[in-house]
Structures are given as structure tokens and as C-alpha cells.
């Protein structure tokens, strides 16, 4: 879901947060950031960016710490094939597979879905403008504030969020505050 597809009312309620520079997130990489009381994972899968709430809908595990893997499909007993057109984010606890593009799990598609977040690249100029107008907020997390200040021309990654209820926080049930080492993805 991108900002362009939301209603004007929804757009008013949705806030945007800069989370990192584009070049901090090369293909295969991930970042886990704290945004306005939520822990979110941002992934670069072959040049496309996806965001997922860092809390597994199953039992609350730190979903975004899990491995990102291609699908394994089968036509029947004894047949197994890799299908890289679908990439799964797997929960580091119970291994459940979630479509990284939309959070959808497939063994029970009606019931369980990881919450996706839209991630857009915005041109450096546009982002700066919004900052001056107070629309785009700064992000807490492992990034230095000064990185955002450096170059006007650089592209930024921006996250769109609806505000939480006052006092609400969304964190994984696991050790959310421990610095998470970046992992190499396939």
C-alpha cells in the first residue's frame, strides 16, 4: 500500500518517518529501526524495499531478525524446487514463512498476516522540504542523526505510519532492545 492509494483522510493521519539513506541498505540487507514506539524491519530484496513490523503475529517473536529465504515448491512426493520469485521472511522462533512483500502467510491465509509497512524512496529534495515543513519526523534507532543532514541530493528511505494510541508501544516479545547484528541475506 503506498501513500498514493490512501484517502485524503488517511493521508492526514499517516505520518512519515525517515529511517535511513538508500545506500545504507544494499540489496540483501536489512535494518531494524525504532519508529514512534514500533520496531520495524526494512529489507532490500533485489532493489525493492519492504517494511515489516518486527513482531510475529504467531507468538510475538522478533520477526525481522529471521532469515529471508526463497520459496521451496513441490509438485508432489520427491520433487523440490527453489522459486526465487517469492521471498519469505521466516520468523527466527518458529520458522513461519511470511511473504516479504506483503506479510502474507500461506498455510492459513485468512488468519495470519504479518503487518507490512509501505516503504518509499523519496528524492532528497522532496524529503528535505517536508522536514522543513514539519511533516517528516526524525527516527530514533541505531542511526546517527547527522547522517540525514549530509547531502541534499542523496535519496532517503521514508516510512509511512499511522500514529499509535497514546502510550502504546509495539515491540517483539523477545529482547527488542538488544542491538541486532545485521545478517547477510541470500
Amino acid at each position: 500500500m503506498s501513500a498514493a492509494q490512501t484517502t485524503p483522510e488517511q493521508r492526514q493521519k499517516v505520518a512519515k518517518y525517515v529511517v535511513a539513506k538508500v545506500d545504507e541498505l544494499p540489496p540483501g540487507g536489512r535494518l531494524i529501526v525504532d519508529v514512534d514506539g514500533r520496531s520495524i524491519g526494512i529489507f532490500n530484496v533485489k532493489g525493492s524495499y519492504y517494511g515489516i513490523l518486527n513482531r510475529c503475529p504467531h507468538l510475538g517473536g522478533p520477526l525481522c531478525v529471521g532469515d529471508v529465504v526463497p520459496d521451496v515448491t513441490s509438485e508432489g512426493q520427491g520433487h523440490m524446487e527453489l522459486d526465487e520469485s517469492t521471498m519469505w521472511l521466516t520468523c527466527p522462533w518458529h520458522n513461519w514463512e511470511f511473504d516479504i512483500t506483503n506479510g502474507q502467510s500461506y498455510w492459513n491465509p485468512k488468519r495470519l498476516k504479518a503487518r507490512p509497512f509501505s516503504v518509499e524512496i523519496e528524492g532528497g529534495r522532496a524529503v528535505l522540504q517536508e522536514e522543513e515543513e514539519g511533516v517528516t519526523g526524525r527516527v530514533k534507532g541505531p542511526y546517527q542523526a547527522e547522517k540525514i543532514d549530509v547531502e541534499v541530493e542523496e535519496d532517503y528511505l521514508v516510512v509511512s505510519l499511522r500514529p499509535l494510541r497514546p502510550g502504546q508501544q509495539v515491540r517483539p516479545a523477545g529482547p527488542a532492545d538488544r542491538p541486532t547484528p545485521l545478517k547477510e541475506d541470500r
Binding site: V69, S74, E75, Q77, C91, H94, N95, W107
Partner: peptide, 15 residues
């Protein structure tokens, strides 16, 4: 268990 370990036995299409 299958929900987490499906990839080992991917021919199973239902629970």
C-alpha cells in the same frame, strides 16, 4: 510443527 518446518516436506499442500 509442519507450519514451521514446511520447507522440509514441501509436497504437503494442506495441513
Amino acid at each position: 510443527k509442519w507450519k514451521g518446518l514446511r520447507r522440509e516436506v514441501p509436497w504437503l499442500q494442506k495441513t
